[in-house]
Simulated assay, not measured.
Amino acid sequence: MTMLDNALGLSADALRLRAQRLDVIAGNIANAATPGFKARDLDADAALARLQTARNGGFGSELASQLGDIRYRAALVPSLDGNTVEMATEQAAFAENAVKYRASLGFLTGRIQTIMSALKGGE
């Protein structure tokens, strides 16, 4: 791990995974009317837990992209055209992930400001 990885902790990886999940969910919403489209999702919380375990074992943040497995989501109410996108589920997932993205961004911003302050001598 580099010194920057140590300083930023999981914040940068969390932000990357949350952004990736937002992209996946946005793709689901965009294809809500596409026949045969299968909704996908990324379990960012599980990926972050695995990444934390890997970091504790001495592995770097380069594992973040490998740990974010995108999987198909099963539909609660299947549609006749084979599309598994359910707008209520997607909107709820998007809103929840957006809040977590903002929190991750806030943590990362705070860490960067602390590092900048330390580099400037505590100004």
Rank of each mutant, 00 (worst) to 15 (best):
A88F: 04
A26N: 03
S61N: 06
L42G: 12
R50G: 06
E123W: 08
T89H: 13
G121P: 03
Y72R: 10
Y72M: 09
P35W: 01
L22V: 15
T89F: 11
D45I: 14
D81E: 02
D13N: 14
R102D: 14
E86F: 02
L51F: 04
Q91F: 12
D45A: 15
V24P: 00
L17R: 06
I25N: 03
A98G: 03
A92M: 12
M3A: 14
A30Q: 05
G57A: 15
S79P: 05
R50W: 07
R21I: 11
G58D: 04
R16Q: 14
A32S: 08
Q52C: 04
R73P: 05
L42D: 09
K100M: 12
G58T: 04
G36A: 01
A39P: 03
A75K: 04
N83L: 00
R111T: 10
A54T: 02
K100F: 03
S61Y: 04
L51T: 08
A14Q: 07
R55I: 12
S11Y: 10
T109L: 12
E123F: 10
L76M: 02
S65W: 09
G58F: 01
D81Q: 02
A75C: 04
L42K: 04
S104Q: 07
N28C: 01
A88I: 13
L119A: 07
G60V: 06
E86Q: 15
A74G: 08
Q91H: 06
D5R: 15
A95W: 03
D23I: 07
V99P: 08
D43H: 09
T84F: 07
R40Y: 01
N28H: 02
G60E: 05
L10E: 13
T2M: 10
L67R: 00
D41M: 12
A95M: 07
E62L: 11
G82E: 04
F107P: 05
L4D: 11
A74E: 14
N31R: 12
L17S: 09
L4N: 08
R102T: 13
I115S: 05
A7P: 13
D69N: 11
L22S: 13
A54N: 07
Q113I: 09
L42Y: 12
F94Q: 02
G122L: 02
G122Y: 05
L51P: 03
E86S: 05
A7V: 12
I29P: 00
T114K: 08
F94M: 01
R21G: 10
A47C: 01
E96Q: 15
A47F: 01
L76A: 13
L76D: 09
L108D: 06
L42Q: 11
A39D: 02
L51D: 02
A44T: 14
T89D: 15
R50Q: 14
K100G: 07
S11T: 12
Q91L: 15
I112Y: 06
A74Y: 08
G121F: 08
E86Y: 01
A7I: 15
R55F: 10
S117T: 11
A103E: 13
G57W: 09
T34A: 07
L80M: 10
A64Y: 05
F94C: 02
V99K: 13
M116H: 07
A92D: 13
R40D: 01
L10G: 12
Q91Y: 04
N28V: 03
L67M: 09
L80A: 13
E62Q: 15
G9P: 02
R73C: 07
A30R: 00
L80W: 04
F94I: 01
Q91N: 11
I29Q: 00
I25M: 06
A103Y: 14
A30V: 05
T53G: 14
R55H: 13
